[in-house]
Amino acid sequence: MTQTLLHIDTSARHHGSVSRDLSARIVDRLSPDHLIHRDLSQALPQITEAWVGATFTPDDVRTDAQRETLALSDRLVDELAAADTIVIGTPMYNFGIPASLKAWVDLIARVGRTFEYTETGPRGLLTGKRAIIAIATGGAEIGSDADFASGYLRFVLGFMGVTDVQIVAADRLNADQDAALDSAAAQITALAA
C-alpha cells in the first residue's frame, strides 16, 4: 500500500534546529512512498476579511477573486487530505507554537473541507490519518502547565479528525541537552513504521 507523508517544518532556524532534525529523522524512520514537504519558516499570510468571506461563500457561487483568495488555503488542505501521515517539526516559542504554524492551522481549518458541523456538534473530515509531532523546547516540559503547544496541536488535529497523534519530545534542552536528545532518539526508534 502506497503511503503519502506530509512533512511540515516550522522552525525559523534552518541550521542547528532540533525540531527540523527530529522531524527529518522521523520521516527517514517511516520511509514513505511519497513525500510532500512544506516549510513554514517563510511565514504564511494571515487570514483576512476577504478570506473569511470567501470561505463562507458556497463554492458554486464564488467569484474568481474569491477563488484566488482561497488558492493557497486550498493547496494546503489538499496536501493534508492527500497524506496518510503528517509529521510536524516545531519548536516551542514562548510556551506555544510558532506564528507560522498557527497561520497554517488557520488556513486549513475550513468548514466543509476539514470539518463540518452536525446536529451533535463538529465532526472532523480527515479521519484515518496519523500525526507525529516533534517538539523541541528550551526550558518548558511537554505536558506541564507551561506547555501550550502539544495540547493545542493534539486538539486542533483531533477537531479535524486526526485523532492518532503521537508526540516526540526533546524538551528542557537548556537544562540537559544530551538527555533530551537521547530521549527523543529513543522515542523515534520506538515509533511503528
Rank of each mutant, 00 (worst) to 15 (best):
M1G: 13
M1Y: 05
M1F: 01
T2L: 04
T4F: 02
L5K: 03
L5V: 03
L5R: 00
L6R: 01
H7F: 01
H7T: 00
S11R: 08
H14N: 07
H15I: 06
S17G: 01
S17C: 01
V18F: 04
L22K: 11
L22W: 06
S23H: 02
S23A: 04
A24Y: 05
S31K: 01
P32Y: 10
I36K: 00
R38E: 04
D39R: 03
D39F: 02
L44F: 07
P45I: 04
Q46K: 07
Q46N: 11
T48W: 02
E49A: 07
E49H: 04
V52I: 12
G53A: 13
G53L: 12
A54T: 10
T55R: 00
F56N: 00
T57F: 04
D59E: 12
V61K: 13
V61M: 09
T63Q: 08
D64Y: 06
D64K: 06
D64M: 01
Q66I: 07
T69E: 05
T69C: 08
A71H: 10
S73L: 12
R75D: 11
D78V: 03
D78A: 12
E79D: 15
A81S: 04
A81K: 07
A83P: 13
D84P: 03
T85P: 12
V87Y: 07
G89N: 08
P91D: 10
Y93R: 15
F95K: 09
I97A: 14
V105A: 10
L107D: 00
L107K: 02
A109L: 12
A109Y: 08
R110W: 03
T114G: 03
E116S: 11
T118N: 11
E119C: 10
E119A: 13
T120A: 09
T120L: 09
T120W: 13
G121E: 13
G124D: 08
G124T: 09
R130Q: 07
A131H: 07
I132R: 03
I133G: 03
I135T: 11
T137A: 12
G138W: 07
E141K: 14
G143D: 13
D145Q: 11
A146V: 14
A149R: 12
S150D: 10
S150A: 14
Y152K: 13
L153V: 14
L153C: 11
R154E: 11
F155A: 15
V156F: 12
M160Q: 08
D164K: 14
D164L: 10
V165I: 15
V165Q: 08
I167G: 15
Q177W: 10
Q177I: 13
A185W: 09
A186N: 09
T189P: 05
A190H: 10
L191K: 11
